[in-house]
């Protein structure tokens, strides 16, 4: 049960959140222009690093806001949280 620092509500139990996988995967500008390979990459391929990972969370049982976090998947340590639309912090 991670303690996740929601940027809007403060630290809350993991059970209050919904996980959204990799952050910063934008919906393609023009899907029709993509090859099948490129579209498949958008649909199905996400990074899966052992180490720092910028990922999305939604505080579903709280403010219902989506936000991003940088977490180390080897230790579960959360290095940073930041709001949607903000760039990934350089230090994390």
């Amino acid at each position: 049960m991670l303690l996740i620092p929601c940027p809007w509500c403060g630290p809350r139990d993991e059970a209050e959140f919904h996980y959204g996988g990799q952050a910063h995967v934008a919906y393609p500008e023009n899907p029709a222009a993509l090859s099948d390979e490129e579209w498949a990459r958008y649909l199905f391929f996400r990074d899966n690093p052992k180490g720092l990972f910028a990922e999305r969370w939604s505080h579903t049982a709280g403010c219902r806001r989506w936000f991003n976090a940088v977490r180390d998947t080897a230790t579960n340590e959360i290095h940073a949280v930041y709001r949607v639309g903000e760039p990934r912090p350089v230090s994390a």
């Binding site: 999305r56 939604s58 989506w66 949607v84």
Partner: peptide, 13 residues
């Protein structure tokens, strides 16, 4: 509802 909010907040803010 989650689907709608996800698109609104993360793709089309």
């Amino acid at each position: 509802l989650d689907w709608m909010e996800e698109w609104l907040q993360t793709e089309w803010p």
